[in-house]
């Protein structure tokens, strides 16, 4: 599981690749810390290469969302696959994020 963060003007993009399961969550939580410090930007959670997300992964996304709201940032979840889309619907997380 890898997380790559890039700044792109008014956007900050976190690209996830691999399986965001309980084992990967600790490192990912560490990797996304730069997202928690930004303000006034759009945060893109790019899931093009993300294969799977567990509850631990959802909690990480939730942390980003809460922090972003406090800092006036918008969070967009981009390019989720069918399995992750299913998780978002089942848990009601679909109404927490803008999904593109």
């Amino acid at each position: 599981m890898t997380t790559t963060i890039t700044n792109n003007g008014n956007q900050i993009i976190a690209a996830f690749a691999g399986r965001l399961d309980t084992a990967a969550a600790v490192q990912t939580a560490e990797d996304i810390k730069p997202l928690l410090e930004v303000s006034g930007k759009e945060i893109i959670l790019d899931c093009t290469e993300l294969e799977y997300i567990s509850s631990s992964g959802l909690r990480i996304f939730l942390t980003v969302r809460k922090d972003a709201a406090a800092h006036g940032c918008k969070v967009i979840v981009r390019n989720i696959n069918a399995d992750i889309r299913q998780v978002f619907v089942m848990t009601g997380f679909v109404s927490l994020f803008e999904i593109q």
Binding site: S54, M90, T91
Partner: peptide, 20 residues
Amino acid sequence: ARHQLGNTDLDIISSSVGIQ
């Protein structure tokens, strides 16, 4: 919800799941 979540280990839901 039982049909969707029953065979997963997802242990976090949002409070919108019922109304949704």
